[in-house]
């Protein structure tokens, strides 16, 4: 599903060159649930951004499905992200000025769907994460766990084949974290969604199919 070959990422400033990823190669199968672990600053989020086509590697090749991604234009990359990838972030990244339902609808705005269709799909996604009763609330009226469930609903509303989750339980207590993990496992098992999750939590990582460890930008496991 996702193939990374010899991925290298270097961040350059005027005076400093930082090697964030050093020759990382990964094959992630369709329907796999992979977790990425490693200390802070080891390149986990960089790897996820590169997988999510939010960032470009300095060297190496990324294939998602049968698609090579290096020659895609900004517009093509955006469309690819919109249709294939769902993102979940540690800090939720909800838009506080929009209601829950409008936040969930967000990826669908960039597809040619009617308002009715968008609303219907967003409603179903919220139902999946158990938040049907919160559609008209604003994010500021929700708890951390509820916010993350809204973020999951937003990630799955467009029925992507891949979900990239960057420390989805990092801001939550263990009970809330388990709830979120259960939803992700369900998405993986029931819908066959490929999930790549960055986490610091060994217990969460143990629940996934495979664990990849990074250290100083290199894959160590």
């Amino acid at each position: 599903m996702i193939r990374l070959q010899n991925i290298e990422k270097v961040y350059r400033t005027d005076t400093v060159e930082t090697l964030a990823l050093n020759s990382v190669s990964l094959d992630i199968a369709k329907g796999e649930f992979l977790s990425v672990m490693g200390p802070s600053g080891c390149g986990k989020s960089t790897l996820l951004n590169i997988m999510g086509l939010l960032d470009m590697p300095t060297k190496g090749e990324i294939r998602i499905g049968d698609n090579k991604t290096e020659n895609l234009t900004d517009k093509q990359l955006a469309q690819f992200r919109n249709k294939t990838i769902g993102f979940i972030f540690q800090s939720y990244h909800l838009i506080n000025d929009l209601k829950v339902i409008d936040n969930v609808e967000l990826p669908l705005l960039y597809r040619s769907l009617s308002a009715k269709e968008r609303k219907e799909l967003a409603g179903k996604a919220l139902e999946k994460v158990g938040l049907s009763n919160r559609v008209k609330h604003f994010p500021t009226q929700l708890s951390g766990g509820q916010k993350q469930r809204v973020a999951i609903a937003r990630a799955i509303v467009g029925r992507p084949e891949i979900i990239l989750a960057d420390e989805p339980t990092g801001n939550l207590d263990s009970a809330m974290g388990n709830e979120i993990m259960d939803i992700l496992l369900q998405l993986n098992q029931r819908d066959g969604t490929t999930i790549v999750m960055v986490t610091h939590d060994e217990n969460m990582a143990k629940k996934t199919h495979r664990l990849v460890r990074l250290f100083d930008g290199s894959q160590v496991q």
Partner: peptide, 9 residues
């Protein structure tokens, strides 16, 4: 950033 991630060019 979020809008770019969810599909905005």
């Amino acid at each position: 950033g979020l809008r770019r991630a969810v599909g905005a060019s």
